[in-house]
Nucleic acid binder design. Structure first.
Lengths: 224, 224
DNA sequence: GGCGTAAGTGTATAATGGACACATGAAGGA
DNA sequence: TCCTTCATGTGTCCATTATACACTTACGCC
């Protein structure tokens, strides 16, 4: 494998990373899109991303692009899939390694201030027409996220530090597009031992205050 | 995202595909390795693979490399992960998109004749020292294969056209490194409806002949 | 025809998943 | 202060699924 003697003699494709940044807001699962101001697809919405530099790993590139374009840093990033259709970029051969990341509504609102480029969250089932094959990439990522809900605690990235069980349940329901039984949901979630009651309760609401919970540790793990 | 005006002005990494070709033979899960006869890692064993051409997709590249180096064509190929550590190739920046494929023992024996390059199957837990980060890639692939056994019929690629339920069970046991209960295994497998009795039986053996089964269709599907 | 060998089969128990309804605690207004 | 409003919080029964476990059957061979 590899070549004989000199790898530089081969034509080389360009390599980019593109990031699906998920959040849940206003009862919808959303992803971040940025407005392109260059050809091709000028003025189209696209996933945040860009070229991989020669001295950085793919994970580093994804982290860098995400923080450059959004100001959000050190999120949990997971490699999704690599798309390499020769015609996916009309200019030249571009292979893109895609990642997904999750951010809580509250955290995003804070960190997004001061970003120059136009960037906006869109509900995943009301996406505008996207540049390149980004529509396909988005669908793939949403599907992956749905699957992962079933056997990991990946959802922790979408929630703030403390939250009620009802909040948590809503996030599941929004992503899975189903409604869940409250008692069964709580039983199952608590039986994993991954979240613990903080002891504090919601205050200032006109009904019984809910217990606030938090994740025991902030690492994504497989739960079964 | 992307660049301004001219993508060709950026340094570009080389991109390869590497393929983990699994088989089960002599009671062990094995992968195909080829002997390198170029630097770096001359005389080391490595995964079959090579550079992605400018006019082919990643899937096509994986298929091509696999058939060039082994003579086996049109196997089920699944993209695994993309490895892009800047130092993984000592020559220059090389990003590799990895795939896994499965071939049955019997099919391989037929098609492998006439291959020039030295190629050999090695048990996955007795691998020699491999070139580049191929040891890590192999581990990742084995793990993925194990996981997929649980919720897909991916194993069909490892078996010939017809097989006994005992054969099938052995393949599961070898890959998962556990022993399974015969009755429970048969119940579960048959309840998926994905395999059917062919009506024929093994002949010429000194004990009760086993029914031969085959997969109803040859597509990999999710079973739950 | 008796032996060796792997095939083939059922049941009882435990664990899991899903359906389902009512009392509780706080705020706010009468 | 008492009554209303509203989301919280909790337990049981049933169905399904997973697991443990042992003997009879069919064939070749000697």
């Amino acid at each position: 494998m590899k070549d004989k003697y000199d790898v530089t003699k081969y034509d080389r494709p360009s390599v980019t990373v593109d990031v699906l940044l998920f959040t849940v807001e206003a009862g919808e699962l959303k992803i971040l899109l940025v407005k392109r101001n260059e050809t091709p697809f000028e003025d189209s919405w696209a996933l945040p991303g860009g070229f991989v530099r020669m001295d950085e790993s793919l994970d580093e590139a994804a982290n860098r692009e995400l923080s450059e374009e959004t100001g959000v840093k050190n999120l949990y990033l997971e490699q999704l899939y690599t798309f390499g259709n020769p015609k996916r970029d009309p200019r030249t051969r571009v292979i893109t390694v895609t990642y997904m990341a999750l951010v809580s509504n509250t955290e995003w609102k804070f960190k997004s201030t001061g970003d120059a480029k136009e960037a906006k969250f869109f509900a995943v089932d009301k996406l505008p027409k996207l540049a390149f094959d980004h529509t396909e990439i988005s669908k793939y990522g949403v599907q992956r996220l749905r699957n992962k809900l079933g056997y990991t605690n990946i959802v922790l990235g979408l929630l703030p530090g403390s939250f009620t069980l009802t909040d948590l349940q809503k996030v599941y329901e929004i992503i899975l597009k189903t409604s869940l039984d409250k008692r069964n949901f709580r039983k199952k979630i608590l039986s994993t031992g991954l979240i613990v009651a903080s002891g504090k309760k919601l205050e200032g609401i006109a009904h019984r205050p809910a217990m606030l919970y938090c994740f025991k540790n902030k690492k994504v793990v497989i739960t079964d």
